[in-house]
């Protein structure tokens, strides 16, 4: 890790190669359009995330039915769908909070019936939550540093006594947290209690907490819900940066179809627990099944979707 981030941390970080070597990451930085087509055609042997035939039932009610999803390394992948389509359930399965009734989840070469949530961070996966899940009683800096909690290998006695190992890890984590805070322009509020900040800022803090561990796979649960237009712009820039400069593969769940179209490489659409479409934003936008799902059956004016 080079240099201590200050206000200029953003620039530094963008030039820095990602912690984890994502294969082909330099090549993939070329042209956005080209990349999209390329990815859509790709079927990778080792996807960043793979879901195979995922089904989930809650007491007889099917929330998800045979959902397959493949996410390529380094792509921004959106999963959209109306309320109750099963998007959040999907993300909760990926993060191990739910156990799918059937199906498997794959990270890289690891495959799971139920993802072990406690080992999620160790597998390089981070997520945010639809309804903010910050630690209200901690400062912004501490919240962000919490994203590295799993790196503290020194026991509590060594932490109390300030043993060299504990202090070194503490220093490293604090430095990393400060860097990400600079990256997301949160310096001004770093010592405020997270619970006292405006909603949009809290969303950014949550993103920072997820990014601080430099995840290989970042799951975003409705990152744009409830934020202003300007904040949406800013947030999508941050999401793009997270991929471009930190090398994260990103899966984002969204209710609002508009925002994600410009941001994502590929989009999957869920409706009533089934995947009804999957492809580039353009393909999905033109898909009649998607238009039905969003606007009711057989709507003539498809242009409304082309936001």
């Amino acid at each position: 890790m080079s240099g201590i981030a200050t206000g200029a941390g953003v620039l530094r970080l963008e030039e820095e190669p990602p912690d984890e070597q994502i294969h082909g990451s330099t090549r993939e930085r070329d042209n956005a359009t080209e990349r999209r087509t390329e990815r859509a055609a790709q079927t990778l042997a080792n996807p960043a995330l793979g879901l195979a035939k995922i089904s989930l039932t809650f007491g007889g009610v099917a929330a998800l039915r045979d959902v397959d999803l493949e996410v390529a390394q380094g792509e921004i992948r959106a999963v959209i769908g109306p309320n109750g389509a099963g998007k959040s359930s999907l993300l909760n399965i990926v993060s191990g909070l739910y156990r799918p009734t059937r199906g498997q989840v794959q990270f890289g070469e690891h495959s799971f019936d139920q993802v072990p949530t406690a080992r999620l961070a160790a597998h390089g996966v981070a997520r945010t939550f639809q309804n903010l899940a910050l630690f209200k009683g901690l400062s912004v800096l501490d919240n962000v540093q919490m994203g590295l909690a799993h790196r503290m290998r020194a026991g509590f006695l060594r932490q109390i006594m300030g043993a060299p190992l504990a202090r070194r890890i503490e220093e490293e984590n604090r430095t990393a947290a400060k860097e990400v805070i600079g990256f997301l322009h949160l310096d001004d509020v770093h010592d405020r209690f997270a619970g006292t900040l405006p909603y949009g800022v809290q969303k950014r803090v949550e993103l920072a907490r997820a990014l601080v561990a430099r995840p290989k796979l970042l799951l975003l649960d409705e990152p744009f819900a409830g934020v202003t237009f300007a904040e949406k712009q800013e947030l999508s820039q941050h999401v793009r940066n997270a991929r471009d400069s930190l090398g994260a593969t990103i899966v984002l769940i969204e209710h609002d179809i508009g925002v994600v179209m410009g941001l994502s490489d590929r989009v999957a659409v869920l409706d009533y627990g089934r995947k009804i479409a999957d492809g580039t934003p353009d393909q999905v936008r033109a898909d009649p099944a998607v238009i039905d799902a969003y606007l009711g059956v057989a709507h003539e004016d498809a242009t409304e979707l082309a936001v």
Partner: peptide, 21 residues
Amino acid sequence: SQSGRNFIAVRDHEIAAKVIG
């Protein structure tokens, strides 16, 4: 210390704390 922050994290949002590791 980190352990103390972990306490508060578990108090404020147990699921998020678990996901973080």
